[in-house]
Structures are given as structure tokens and as C-alpha cells.
Computed example of a mutant assay.
Amino acid sequence: MKTILWATLAANGNYAQSGPENPPTKEALDDFFTQVKDTGNFIVGRRTFEGMRGNGGPGPFADIDIVVVSKNATDIPGVTVVRSPEEALDYLKEKGHQTALISGGADIHNSFLGQGLVDELIFNVAPVLEGRGLNLLIDKENYCSKPVQLLDFKALGGGVVQLRYGIERAV
């Protein structure tokens, strides 16, 4: 199964932190909806999912397989809750998906990256600098670098640039 990690980053490389006072860009949201429609699913952490859910209801994700990775949550109506990245991928494979979209939460992103479970990275770089943002970490204990291959780049509008990288998966 192909796995794509999707994230919006600030221009200085930190995760773009969104909230009521700092909403995500329209261009990044539109791209997220396109990616979700193309894959038919997304994997997200519990806290990020709760932030996305807003007032409840399925919204634009009514026919989408949503997988929430959480060590604490037991049941969230309308989604599948799993305990690990591997369990999330196994579930989506069983449902017949060819591609999984990993969409939210620094902890979830770092977990998939740290375990070598990502094939492709999509970074939407927003035209903002953030001092309190979180970072992507592939190894929290040691300095290491992992080469990636630029597959594509394009302007999404509104100053947002999308970078798409291939990443060699751990064997």
C-alpha cells in the first residue's frame, strides 16, 4: 500500500498551527479535500480529528474511511479507532484501499516517519513564519538525514507552494 503524508508547513519549516484565530489557508484546505477524495480515506490523530470535527456531523467526509490513531480513545462515532500506524494501514488494506493518506497531527506524522511507513510527502508551504510550530522528526534520539526525491512542485495560489517528495521506505 502506498502511503502519503500530507502536511501544511510554515515558510520556516514548522508545522502551520491552525485554530480559530489562525485558520488554515483556503488553498491548503482545498488541496486536502482533493487528496481525500482521490484516496477515499485519511488517517489522523485523535486531537487533530477532534479539532477538525467542529460541530460534529460527517460534513464533506460522509463517504470517506476515516481512521483515528489513538492509544486512549475507544470509540468515536463514524470513524474507525486503532492503536498504531500498522493497524491503521492494515485496516485500510482490508477495506481495499491502494493508497493511505496520513493527514494530521505531528505525533502521527512522526510515528509513521519514524517507523519508515511513508512513501510520499506532500508539503503545502504557507506564506507565514511560525515560532511555536512543531517539527517533523524521523529520529528523536539521533541526528540523521534521509534523502528524498522531489517529484513535483506547484503554486496552489494565495502564496501557498506545494512540494511533493518521494521517500524510500524502510525495508
Rank of each mutant, 00 (worst) to 15 (best):
A170M: 12
Y143C: 01
L117G: 10
W6K: 06
P23Q: 11
Q115G: 03
Q162K: 15
I138S: 03
F33A: 15
Q35M: 08
I122P: 15
S18A: 13
A7K: 04
V148A: 12
K71E: 04
D119N: 11
A126N: 15
K146I: 08
G157W: 14
Y91M: 13
S84L: 08
E141C: 00
P60Q: 11
N124Q: 03
Q17T: 06
V82F: 06
G56E: 05
N124M: 00
L101R: 10
L129Q: 04
E120M: 13
K154Y: 15
T3K: 05
P24I: 01
T3R: 03
N22D: 01
V148K: 09
A100Q: 08
L137I: 07
F32E: 03
I108W: 15
V160E: 10
G57F: 04
V79M: 11
N135R: 12
G157E: 07
M1P: 14
Q98D: 15
V44K: 02
F49I: 14
L129I: 08
V68T: 07
D65K: 15
N22K: 01
V68S: 09
A155S: 04
G105T: 01
Y91H: 15
C144R: 09
R164T: 08
D90K: 08
F32L: 08
R164M: 09
V171N: 14
K154E: 12
P85K: 08
S111G: 04
V118S: 00
L134K: 01
G45P: 11
L137S: 05
T99I: 06
N142W: 04
L151A: 01
G57A: 07
V44F: 06
Q35I: 02
E120S: 14
K93G: 12
P60T: 07
I138V: 01
L151G: 01
R164F: 07
F32K: 07
G40A: 13
V161L: 15
P23T: 12
P58I: 01
P58R: 04
Q17M: 02
K140C: 07
Q149I: 03
N142C: 02
I167E: 10
E141I: 00
E168Y: 13
Y15N: 01
T8P: 03
L121I: 05
H109K: 03
T8N: 03
Y91S: 13
A106N: 11
S70K: 05
M1D: 14
A11S: 10
R83N: 09
T39Y: 00
P77I: 10
N110D: 06
G116Q: 00
L113H: 06
E21L: 14
D31T: 11
E21Q: 15
I76G: 09
G57Y: 10
M52P: 07
